[in-house]
Each structure stands twice: as C-alpha cells, then as structure tokens.
Amino acid sequence: MSASSIRRLVSKNLLKFYGLSGHRSGLQVISRRCSTEKENEAVHSEDESEFFENEDDLKKSVLDKALAFVPTHGWSQKAISKGAEELGYPGVAHGMFTRGGVDLALHFCDACNQTLAARMKTDADAVLDAPAARKPVRSVIGDAVQSRLTMIHPYIEQWPQALGLLVMPQHAPESVALLQNLVDDIWFYAGDKSIDVDWYTKRLTLASVYVSTELYMTQDRSPGFADTWQFMESRIDNLSTAGEDFTRCSPMQSYTKYC
C-alpha cells in the first residue's frame, strides 16, 4: 500500500475521529491517531453509513448544506461553517475550502448546471419518443436559460456578491469553464450538430445572452421578474436577426458553395 493511499484512508476518517465523535474520549482519539491502515479499515466498516466515499462527496454535502445559510450570511466562510455544523462537523471545517465563499459560489453554479442538464436530457429523451412534441430550438434555448436563471432566485439578493467573486481574475478560468459547460449543454440538448466555426459563435453568443440577462436580473424589481424575461427574449431575437444577416453576407458561404 503506497503512502498516498494510506494518507487518503487516514484523511477520509480523520474528520470523523477528531471533530465529532463526542462519544470517544480524548485518549481514544489519541490512540486512533497512531492507528494503522488496518484499523482504519475496520473503523470504516464499523459505521460506514456516516462516511463519505471520498473527500469530494464530503465537500459537496457541506457546501449543499451551506447554501441554506447564504441568504443570511452571504457567499462567505461563515455560511460554509454553518453548513458544516448542520452536518455535525465543527465549524472550523470551512478550512477545507481555502477560498471560502468562492468555492461555495462555484459549487452552486456547477450544481445548477447539472440539474439543468439532467432536466434537458429528460426533455430531449421525451422528444425522441414523441417527435410531434418537438419544440422549436429557439424556445428550447429560451426555456433553458430561463430555468437556469430561476435557480438563482432564492439567492437573488446575494447574487451580485457571488458574481463579484466569480469574475475575479484568479477565479475567472473556473467560472468561464462553468459558463462554457452550461452553454454547451444547452446547445447539445437543443439538438445542435454544428461542426465548424458555428460551434464557437453559437456558444459565445448564447453565453453573452445568459450573462447579460443575469446582470439585468440582479437589478430587476418587477413582479415575477417579468422584465428580465422580456429582456432575455429580445436578446435572443437580436441574435437570430444577426445570425441571418451574417449568413446572408458571409463570404465563406459563396466560397464553400463553389469549391
């Protein structure tokens, strides 16, 4: 067994040992520290249900719980602390997330993306069974953007703070990757099969629609975010018009036609 796998095993269980096992005495804890890998495994099977398969799962559930505290504490270390306490870990467990609120915001975006992708997949599968119910691409995309933005509503008051964290240069690569995942999922499930530069323009323009609508939404006070949806519709309209004009006068069009 290599050193790294031992470390993994130990780290898997340490939190449990030190933080939270109220029923274990300090002495037991100290003896646990010297425990060998074998013992670790025994302990692991002893109360398996309370352990997470790996560190990521643990982190994810802490962050999931932390989301409930965002309306009161913002996208902060404090919210993560509260989330960890909710799970029965000590508040200092926020130390697992070295970047504090950013980790929480990134996790939220990722979770929302995955929910949306799952939803769109179900819809796309349903259309496969009943092709008559196929919606036009434009409305598939509009609905997707709308339902993704709706997921932000519970945290709308704190969302400007999250946006501020996400656009910081050191976090930009990750938030851009999440945005790219989002628009790629939307186009994929909308049935996009583009194989050339269109692939890039479609994703870039949809990202611009998403981000501008998101910014608009943070300032929107209309009931039910009616203004936001109107804003989004007109952004998508602009795109379709621009797309048509571009295709009409594209020199590539004539080039590919004659070659």
């Binding site: 470390r7 340490l14 030190y18 997330f97 995942n181």
Partner: peptide
C-alpha cells in the same frame, strides 16, 4: 485533536476544487 485537524486541513491539496467543480 483540534491541532491535528488543523494540520490535516493545511495539507497539500490532493485534488483541487477545480476538477471537483467543473
């Protein structure tokens, strides 16, 4: 115990948040 936990937290990251989140 508290000290050990802090030590564990300060360990080098095995897997960065990046792969986790994207």
């Amino acid at each position: 115990a508290r000290q050990s936990m802090l030590l564990w937290m300060a360990r080098p990251a095995r897997q960065t948040c990046r792969t986790m989140s994207t």
